[in-house]
Design a protein around this nucleic acid. Structure first.
Length: 201
DNA sequence: CGACGGATGGGCT
DNA sequence: GCCCATCCGTCGG
């Protein structure tokens, strides 16, 4: 009982659980890199072999290796050849799980974030996983960064968020659909939900 | 505004 | 080759 403020040890304990329990607990947490800090307002949970929507669905590969590692690592991947997206790995080593950082509010370094983004609209600086990665200046070589040790990327737990809403994940269809998207209610920075395209048969 | 499609490159059937 | 855990500019109502 050394204090009321969450520290690194609490973060390790927080990330130890099953990914669908951890994900909503990361809402309100603050991610920082290269002069920009973002308070998370929207996240999604991704599991292992049983989750058809997860990169880890078909077992370990070079790209998704970080998802199979210990909790607290940053899993960074390239989306659509253009966008750098980031996840926080959860659960025990060997059982893949990660929380995709979908959107947030820039709480520090707004000028820096604006210089990296095309838009100047504050609300849109990190409204979407690709935008969030761009605002933070994330790069693929940051994949595997240990957030539980001193590093250029940091994650600090926020205060407990009371009004959490949940719904289906974005951009997936069919068997991949799960209500594993979580966001803070009434937050303008939550990314716009786009329905999955219909199957053309 | 909502809908639509092009950009763009790595991963994997 | 085809499929994306997306973004943004453009076009029509």
């Amino acid at each position: 009982m050394s204090g009321t403020r969450p520290g690194p040890d609490d973060l390790a304990a927080l990330l130890a659980g099953p990914v669908e329990r951890v994900a909503p607990l990361l809402l309100g947490a603050v991610v920082s890199h290269a002069g920009v800090s973002i308070r998370l307002t929207e996240v999604e949970a991704y599991g292992g072999a049983d989750d058809a929507g997860s990169h880890a669905h078909r077992g370990p590969t070079r790209r998704n290796a970080t998802m199979f590692g210990p909790a607290g690592r940053l899993y960074v991947y390239l989306s659509y050849g253009l966008h750098v997206c980031a996840n926080v790995v959860t659960g025990p080593e060997g059982s893949p799980g990660a929380v995709l950082l979908r959107a947030g509010e820039v709480v520090a370094g707004a000028d820096e974030a604006r210089s990296r983004r095309r838009t100047g609209v504050a609300r849109d600086l990190a409204r979407g996983p690709g935008r969030l990665g761009q605002a933070l200046g994330l790069r693929l070589d940051l994949d595997g960064t240990d957030l539980l040790a001193p590093s250029t990327v940091t994650l600090q737990p926020g205060e407990l968020v009371t009004s959490v809403e949940r719904g289906p994940r974005v951009g997936l269809r069919g068997d991949a659909e799960r209500p594993w998207r979580f966001w803070i209610a009434d937050e303008p920075t939550v990314s716009a939900y786009r329905k999955a395209p219909p199957l053309g048969c």
